[in-house]
Design a binder for these strands. Sequence first.
DNA 1: CATGAATGAGAATTCATTCAT
DNA 2: AATGAATGAATTCTCATTCAT
Lengths: 213, 213, 213, 213
Amino acid sequence: MSKKQALTEFHRGSILAAAERLFAAKGTEKTTMDDIARESEYSKATLYVYFQSKEEIVNAILLSSMVLLQKKIQAAVEHYGNWFQAYDAVCDAIIRFYGDNPTAYDTTIWEIPVNVDPEQMDKGMRDILQVGDATNAMLADFLRRGAAEGVVRIELPPNETVLLFWAALSGMVRMADSKNGYMGRSLSLERDVFLRHGARMLLDAITKGRTVE
Amino acid sequence: MSKKQALTEFHRGSILAAAERLFAAKGTEKTTMDDIARESEYSKATLYVYFQSKEEIVNAILLSSMVLLQKKIQAAVEHYGNWFQAYDAVCDAIIRFYGDNPTAYDTTIWEIPVNVDPEQMDKGMRDILQVGDATNAMLADFLRRGAAEGVVRIELPPNETVLLFWAALSGMVRMADSKNGYMGRSLSLERDVFLRHGARMLLDAITKGRTVE
Amino acid sequence: MSKKQALTEFHRGSILAAAERLFAAKGTEKTTMDDIARESEYSKATLYVYFQSKEEIVNAILLSSMVLLQKKIQAAVEHYGNWFQAYDAVCDAIIRFYGDNPTAYDTTIWEIPVNVDPEQMDKGMRDILQVGDATNAMLADFLRRGAAEGVVRIELPPNETVLLFWAALSGMVRMADSKNGYMGRSLSLERDVFLRHGARMLLDAITKGRTVE
Amino acid sequence: MSKKQALTEFHRGSILAAAERLFAAKGTEKTTMDDIARESEYSKATLYVYFQSKEEIVNAILLSSMVLLQKKIQAAVEHYGNWFQAYDAVCDAIIRFYGDNPTAYDTTIWEIPVNVDPEQMDKGMRDILQVGDATNAMLADFLRRGAAEGVVRIELPPNETVLLFWAALSGMVRMADSKNGYMGRSLSLERDVFLRHGARMLLDAITKGRTVE
DNA sequence: CATGAATGAGAATTCATTCAT
DNA sequence: AATGAATGAATTCTCATTCAT
């Protein structure tokens, strides 16, 4: 990578970092380009030098974190011989992912506009979906492996189960992170403990035997 | 309730009904006060006679639907002697709730602004949280009943489990409803089937024995 | 027309008048909505209450003046039994039209974007073209009448000739009005005299005999 | 001219050529400095090394093409012994001029800002006006020659007539070129045919006898 | 000289909200 | 009570121009 490219990458990174902070605090929708300019200490016009539109910024953040997530999940799946340990590592990766990328709630995959046929939607969005699909496929394989090892219930269709699992876990993280939502108020649980329990609960839903604490 | 109050209630209801339709179709954010005025056939200014702000409308809708949900859950819990049947009815109620109230995704409890300390936040928001708490308490009782009947795993702390359950299920509905998100693309599943499987999966996570199909 | 409509019409008129002044001074392109707001003494947002877009303002000005022109030309053609007198009146109307509506240079008919198929272009633009067509047809008839009376050269195809005549005359007005263009500098001619000569010149091009001064 | 000057001239030429292509395609207003930089394959900043502003580029193009026009007209006038043939050549040159230089419509002489008193207006603009004046003078002489030869009507004041002729012809070209304006719609005439007829019409306005086809 | 990088100053448009009647 | 009318404050995005290297 040339020095120029590196510098460009650096600036894009600074902008994305600033945007990410703001998105986390106020949500994508409520964050304006002015906000990002102020936070990143570039002028508003400069933002448009490095990104074509606000949407591109949002997508870039999402994509990069999804790629990161994909790598973490892959690492978890490949590193642990023991299926249960791998499971824990996978959950951990996902939980961290949402923790670090609140953006993922807003703009995620689940928010794609209806009327667009997948062929001609933004390159950016397509990339994101592709990474998501790949990650899902990886998890489905992981489930099959568990089934082969005799720990995952054989009757579960892997692809659908991955989706359900993913949805459930993300819902839990969402709740855990809800600023001053239920969690902090009624219960006094650490986010981490809460989510560990959640992961365990979903494990029970998927595996054969009772988990021994 | 005086005649005047009744009339006021009527107008508020008309407005809320219109707003709900629009929110369902376009989301809270994308719906403008102009839209609501047009749909409800009041003038925009009149909206402000019955509601202090757009936010109040959003909250009012949320509150009313949460009250409805509460009633449905209560009915389910109380109506079925069989715990499993009651469980199904509860899931059904929640799924329907999110189906009818996409608003619940946007503005839900999980979206409360950070900087507000719970003491002095909007009356509206407090009401919503209160209903949510009551509903949760009801579900926790339902879990305890299951434990007492020997079907729900005894070691699960009811309050926390309710939260996790709720979060997981809402995550699933969210995914199922994501317009042309993962669901429609990779799998070709009916929303209903998908969610029934999800509910079953969570049941497995909560109950003792393996569920027999 | 109801009182409300009348008021609306009044406001639209005020805005259009202001816009017209600015367009005349700076051209359509260089005139901003802020300018129009300031000049018309409405807020910028109010402009959008009465017009959907800047384009609509431009078109409205153009349309109204073209309708006016059409009426004047019709009056001229119908009022004078003598063809030559009618011709003078027609020229006068056109000259005045461009004098009062410098907008007509910028946005005129001659500026229509290429790629638009006439069926689905703005209602506004279609109206303008329609009035233009009608006016042209009227002038073509006037030419035929002259031919029938033996004063206009018989071999000229009316429709094309109208177009050429119109183009030539508008070019002349354009030059006469060019702020400090050639006119004022080299010659010291009154705009009116200059244009009267122009109209006479075009008359010579169209009619049979030499005009006697 | 020193080597350095020659090089500078070369670069200016490249830039102007690129700009001209763009102006022809999109108009002066819609062409950005970025566009010109891309098309000319210089950096945007370099453009400002060779030209002080966008306006200077526009003016330079205009000037160069007006000089070209002047030469063509001069050639036409000097080359043809027969006045009518020379007239045709002159018209042809002017028509081509506008065909190749749509810029001439936008920025032309007729668009000079009001508030500037001729003394202290841009050097660039003054140059343009000067060339225009010279060209006009040449045409006036041509008219006088025609009068001397007995073909042009003696009573026409040459200077004024040149202006009128020029204005009329440019108006016709303008109309002929209006993308899908009147021309293409109602009539189906070739641009060339249309303009030839226009030139003939103006000839009739200027000369004594009826033109024999 | 040439240029990559940065930006100030707009531009059109939108929308929740107020207020006089 | 009901509303027509008006608007301040944003919002996204654009573009000619400057300047350090």
